[in-house]
Each structure stands twice: as structure tokens, then as C-alpha cells.
Amino acid sequence: MGPLIPNGFIPDEWNNIIAIIIGLAFGYILEASGFSSSRKLAGVFYGYDFVVLKVFFTAAVIAVIGIFYLDYLGYLDFNQLYIHPTYLWGAIIGGIIMGVGFVTGGFCPGTSVCGAAIGKIDAMVFILGILIGVFVFSELYTLFEPIYDGYFLGNQTLMDSLGVSPYWFIFIFTIIALVAFFVVDQIRKKVKKVFY
């Protein structure tokens, strides 16, 4: 049955309207969880605020469990979903660069849009930075192309690359996330509070 739009249950014209609605909810949730504040976001790296980790992992766990239940019950065809492609070194190098960017800038693209929406000037500057970054990448595309297009492993899931049963993986992933929540709370108690 699902996904609805690619299977033609909902006409394609609705796609953009649904995009705006989904975006609205996305922005609302991010902002209401405190993702529009860069110091709150950066807290995850210094141990004074783990809201990023908590929101992020809760969302991932809930989403993956929900999607697999829907798939199991036949409402959603997992094979039709978009699986983020695996370009091994692209993912690693890109991730490293983004990690440095995260700590220096204190935002990621989605949260910077939220920050900009409520008037954070640093978020607006961050967005400007992203635009410049994309521009630099595109201008030097030939230089980056080997990493960008190389080491392509296909639209792989962990089931393909690790050979594990998805259900067991989700179970272990859930437990890891719960343990992480517990540990983080312990860390937070020890770290000196930062007010912002």
C-alpha cells in the first residue's frame, strides 16, 4: 500500500503541499524541543545539555520501530522507501567535515533554519555560510568528484552490509539508545552547569 504518493494513491500535485505541512511540523518540533539555540545544541559535546542526543535517538528509535511495524503489517512497503545511498568515503569525510562545522558553528542546516526563523542572527550567518559552502563545493566539483562519486556501495541497509536481521538490530539499537539516555543523565549531573 504505502508509500502513498509514489504508488499513486495521492496525486502527485499534493506532494508540495504535503511537503509544506511536513516542514511545518518539523520546524515546530525542532524549535519547541530547543533546537533553535546553538548553545543548547553544542551542549551535547560538552556534557551540559544532551537534548540533541535525546531527541535524535528517540526519534530514530521510534521511527525505525514504527516503519518496521508498518512494513510487517503490510501498510508500507519497505523496499519502496528511499534508502540513503552509501558512498563509503564520501560519508566518512563529509561527516568529519560536518562534525567540525557543527562544533564551530553550533547548528546543522535544519536547526539553523529554525534559529533564523526566531531571529537568531548567528543562525542566519550560518545559513549564509552553508550557501557559500555549497557554492565552493560546486565550483570545485571536479576536485571533489572522486570522493563524491567513488566508493559507491549501493543503496545499502545494515541488513545488506552486516548481514543481521533487522528486527534483532532494532532491538539492540533500542537498548543502546536507552542505555545512552541513562548514561547521559549521569554525566550531566557531574558536569558543571552552564546557563544560557
Binding site: F26, S38, F56, A59, A60, H84, P85, Y87, G90, A91, I93, G94, G95, I96, I97, M98, G99, V100, G101, F102, V103, T104, G105, G106, F107, C108, P109, G110, S112, D122, A123, V125, F126, I127, L128, G129, I130, L131, I132, G133, V134, F135, V136, F137, S138, F144, I147, Y148
Partner: peptide
């Protein structure tokens, strides 16, 4: 620093074909 972080993030997001929401989440 925000500008620098933005530039790095923009660059990284293109190389990895996605940012924290698109690729990671």
C-alpha cells in the same frame, strides 16, 4: 565562527549527500 561552521557544513553535506536530518536521521 558561525560563518566558518556554515561553510564547512555546506561543504560536508554535499560530499556526504545529506546533512544531519537528511542522511543521519
Amino acid at each position: 565562527f558561525a560563518l566558518g561552521g556554515g561553510v564547512l557544513f555546506g561543504l560536508g553535506a554535499q560530499i556526504a549527500r545529506g546533512c544531519t536530518s537528511g542522511a543521519a536521521l
